[in-house]
Nucleic acid binder design. Structure first.
Lengths: 346, 346
DNA sequence: CCGGCATTTGACAACGTTGTCTAGGGGCTA
DNA sequence: TAGCCCCTAGACAACGTTGTCAAATGCCGG
């Protein structure tokens, strides 16, 4: 009782081990292990003595040693583009919740859309022997992962498929969503529709472009080269592209923005523009309904993406052995009035 | 060359170890260790043989064992409220970047504002022997952390101070920011100003309320009890509180929203309201400038909060031994026109 | 040609835990 | 009371790596 939690028998920075606890309680090492892990075969009296010693010394099991011995880390890795992006926050949280329900921790890493950094991160996680990986790929060649997967690290790709290897993947219906968005604009009378998207090496950008072209073709509309602009989503690049499209001799009357960052920049540019231009964006975002005109969006459920991927991952970890799967999560068009040819405001 | 990366000498799910590599290369275990870690004292010829064996077997160092041996995990833990909240995404990313620059990985956990869950998470991270912890506390008693900190786990609290222990903390200037926000409203002619904030047990909510009261007192204005409402930030609670304040006999003419979630809900309620009501919110959010009327906000730099905390943490890990520090990050009032007594729109 | 020194290499223990196996003690049955 | 079994408890090895130390080799100067 008068003993402090720090105990007496160890120095600062050196933690007591089960051996210390055993010595203090006057029992064997293994008995401490049993008590710590709630294993049966310990009399109440012995257990109490061990518990007292644990409290007195401030002992906490060293999971590094446990992990080494057991061969499982009870942790999974998540590599995504940028945790600060509002699209990935909910995804990460969803993965975390599933991990938690399976008693696992989540190690998070941002690739910053750099393939080299993605690989570095993924391999660092493999070296730590995470039980599984959820990867939103930045690169397009994941052969470097094949040996790791063969060695038992379950891997699920999300948002974009793996490159040059066969693996589980969970995608949004980018093609269908984009087609619906553009069809929405066409149904509201638009004929000249621009598309501003992410870099063409990114899978989602390609798919959304394909959806755009498909909707235009389906309606028998031509697509002028100047109506399509793929590249960085940095505000200056997107702003310049938007301005250029609006300044053309035959300017577009509507824009389809390829993701949330593009949408936000486009809204700002259109704000300062005299002629009303319709806008539909891929990805929903908070307050999209409060901006005037409200922004019609193709919403993808990023949390659902994460949940599905994590669920699939833990199925694998539970030993389910099936050929690689491909899940597709539907998107949802949320019309908010920005499709009309003459939106209010502006 | 004809050998696959998977090699020949180990079964599925069993990874080769340095011992396997040593056997194949015909060298000693320690020599493999030297090559893997780039230590000096290995002839080029030996190194090449070892590298060949590594490639052939698909060996990757097991960091679990390394960690156990070295006593450092090169990882830090971050416990926050909810990774899906746009306030925490940038903070987490900033912590990650600092960790990365120090060669450390980041383990992330959401407490869901539940003290028990916070403790569970923190102690799980301690059991894994993270080198350090960044904690955004949910609870108000952190004595459970004292033994861990004494044992050498550096800990920095962010956004809210630790409860009942002495520890480093990095805060926003909640009091000053709130006072500036309310003073802004007062300067624009408002006399009856409402405050809707988070639960009073949360430090930031208390501080912002204090700032609100201070600004009102400074201007010699009375504060009616019905103008202050603290509680959950769930939309229905906030919505009801907002509606009630507007329906009072002498309704408030302006609202100060205690955080981003409150602001968003308030905007929605005010939208459907006939009489114009001014609104200033704590926390900036994307598109705050595009909503009409644009929302004046007190911006806090959550990335800066994370960067500062992580920087402090790594200073501790580098052995800097000073008494616990308290940093305060300034906030910034961003006037966007919502302070006027008769904002446009509405 | 020998001693001494630097360089390369490997044997061994240790990190802290858990799985296996065996010893010892007590109670039950025949 | 002998024989058996069950229950508690601990000794020991193993997980895969790194730090320490010593051996072996080769080179240099005298």
């Amino acid at each position: 009782m008068t003993e402090t939690a720090r105990g007496t028998s160890h120095r600062y920075g050196t933690r007591p081990t089960m051996k210390d606890v055993a010595a203090r309680a006057g029992v064997g090492l293994k008995t401490v292990s049993r008590v710590v892990n709630g294993e049966p075969g310990v009399t109440p009296d012995t257990e109490r003595r061990v518990q007292d010693a644990i409290t007195a010394l401030g002992f906490r099991r060293n999971d590094s040693a446990r992990i080494l011995r057991k061969g499982r880390t009870a942790s999974i890795g998540l590599v995504l583009e940028d945790l600060a992006d509002p699209f990935y926050g909910p995804l990460s949280r969803a993965v975390e919740e599933v991990a938690r329900s399976h008693g696992a921790l989540l190690i998070n890493g941002s690739s910053a859309e750099d393939p080299a950094r993605e690989q570095e991160l993924v391999l660092a996680l493999c070296a730590r022997r995470v039980d599984g990986l959820v990867v939103i790929p930045a690169g397009d060649d994941h052969r470097y992962l094949a040996p790791e997967m063969a060695a038992g690290i379950a891997t699920v790709f999300v948002d974009r498929p793996a490159g040059r290897i066969d693996a589980d993947v969970v995608l949004s219906d980018n093609f269908g969503g984009a087609r619906a968005a553009v069809a929405h604009l066409i149904a509201h009378g638009h004929r000249r529709i621009g598309f501003i998207g992410d870099q063409p090496r990114i899978h989602t950008a390609k798919e959304r472009l394909r959806g755009y072209r498909s909707a235009m073709a389906e309606a028998g509309l031509p697509v002028d080269d100047s109506w399509v602009s793929l590249g960085s989503t940095a505000p200056d690049r997107v702003g310049a592209a938007t301005t250029a499209m609006l300044a053309a001799p035959e300017p577009v009357t509507a824009l389809f923005a390829g993701n949330n960052r593009v949408t936000v920049t486009a809204v700002r540019v259109l704000r300062g523009h005299s002629r009303p231009v319709a806008l539909v964006g891929f990805d929903d975002f908070e307050l999209a309904d409060l901006v005037r005109p409200a922004i019609t969006v193709v919403a993808q459920d990023s949390a659902q993406l994460g949940r599905t991927a994590a669920g699939l991952l833990f199925r694998r970890l539970d030993g389910v052995d099936e050929p690689p799967q491909r899940w597709e999560i539907p998107t949802r068009l949320i019309p908010r009035g920005s499709g009309e040819i003459r939106p209010a405001g502006g």
